[in-house]
């Protein structure tokens, strides 16, 4: 199953559950509070997911390591390499 199909399946399951409660499709005579709670649920979920995404990406950008030491080490090694390669007869 492709990821697209997995998503479609997941979304339609959630959509069906939502429709059952919100529109009382099976005529279960659910209390009115259930319905009131259920109908804005997709919006809540979207907002919650959006907040989670922004928080996650923001946190990861803020904590992205800056490898200053790696850059310094590389610069030093470049000098060393150039000197040694010159000695070995490399013409750049």
């Amino acid at each position: 199953m492709t990821k697209l199909l997995e998503w479609l399946l997941g979304c339609s399951l959630i959509g069906m559950a939502w429709g059952l409660v919100t529109f009382d499709l099976l005529d279960l005579q659910l209390p009115a509070q259930y319905r009131e709670l259920a109908w804005p649920m997709p919006v809540y979920l979207l907002v919650a997911f959006g907040c989670y995404s922004l928080a996650t990406v923001g946190y990861r950008v803020a904590t992205f390591n800056d490898c200053e030491d790696a850059a310094k080490e590389l610069q030093a090694q470049i000098k060393e390499a150039k000197a040694e390669l010159k000695k070995k007869g490399l013409k750049m």
Partner: peptide
């Protein structure tokens, strides 16, 4: 993106 991994110059 993990552990001590990272970037320089971005």
């Amino acid at each position: 993106y993990r552990g001590d991994g990272g970037v320089y110059g971005w």
